[in-house]
């Protein structure tokens, strides 16, 4: 009981640290001041302005689409890569380990700039395909490292046992390995999603004229200042995500349990 008490206290403290700035950010979307100034004065001004700001809403949706695409592609690629890595003893493996973290080690500015130069040297228009590829490249390490952490700690003897019981390889992967990996795939996907969702520089270099993403809207505003409309967008998105997660968790409780067991 005591152990549980200490555990929950610790978790609550960490969550408090994690959510304190988020709560401030949300509160500022209801504050009348354009510059987040105190004293706090309740106002719906920024939500009204947001409702009329089609450009910001469009940009936010574009960000969600790109991030979702990035997340799906990253999880698929990362899972495939890790399924290979776990069963091979090829010498390539060490090289590939380094290759995968490479996008993490290069400043995004440099990577974005070189992609831009590649695109412009090839004489083509900026477009969403290249943009998506760029996002996948920078988000992939996150998905890979999370799945890797799971896979390496996983008991491989399960696979061997299953194989010796006559299950063919694919049945093993499908029935045993993937369900065990599922939480990591989910977490890796979420991380890939948020990395893409908050990326400014790659989108900025590669996006076709006339389109925009939420980070582009934010970072382009810093010369003269962005308004708490940005806080309002974030608040709407946070609330929507939370509701969505709760909804999915409730509906799919049974099937989730099946997967996570």
């Amino acid at each position: 009981m005591l152990k549980k008490g200490i555990g929950w206290t610790y978790v609550s403290l960490v969550l408090l640290f994690l959510y304190a700035p988020i709560l401030v950010l949300m509160a500022m979307s209801f504050n009348a001041s354009k510059y987040n100034a105190l004293p706090f004065e309740f106002s719906m001004r920024w939500y009204r302005e947001l409702a009329g700001n089609d450009k910001l809403i469009d940009a936010s949706l574009t960000s969600v689409y790109i991030a979702a695409g990035t997340a799906v592609i990253c999880v698929v690629l990362a899972t495939m890569l890790m399924l290979w890595a776990v069963q091979t003893n090829s010498k390539l493996k060490r090289w590939i380990d380094s290759l995968v973290v490479l996008p993490l080690t290069i400043p995004w500015l440099i990577l974005g700039l070189s992609l831009l130069l590649l695109v412009s040297a090839a004489g083509i228009d900026k477009n969403f395909t290249v943009l998506l590829i760029g996002h996948v490249v920078i988000s992939l390490p996150y998905a890979v490292l999370v799945i890797k952490a799971r896979l390496q700690s996983m008991d491989l003897t399960i696979n061997e046992a299953s194989a010796s019981l006559g299950a063919n390889e694919w049945t093993t992967v499908w029935r045993i390995t993937l369900p065990l990996l599922f939480p990591a795939m989910l977490a890796g996907g979420f991380l890939a999603f948020v990395i893409s969702f908050d990326n400014f520089i790659l989108s900025y270099f590669l996006i076709p004229g006339g389109s925009s993403t939420l980070p582009i809207e934010i970072y382009s505003s810093i010369k003269f200042g962005f308004t708490p409309e940005i806080n309002a967008v974030s608040t709407v998105m946070l609330t929507a995500t939370t509701l969505l997660i709760v909804l999915i968790a409730t509906i799919m409780r049974s099937s989730l349990k099946f997967f996570l067991k």
């Binding site: 994690l18 988020i22 934010i218 940005i230």
Partner: peptide, 13 residues
């Protein structure tokens, strides 16, 4: 709950 805060911009945070 640990991932959700990432939905907000690093700059705004």
């Amino acid at each position: 709950a640990i991932i959700v805060p990432f939905w907000t911009s690093q700059l705004v945070r």
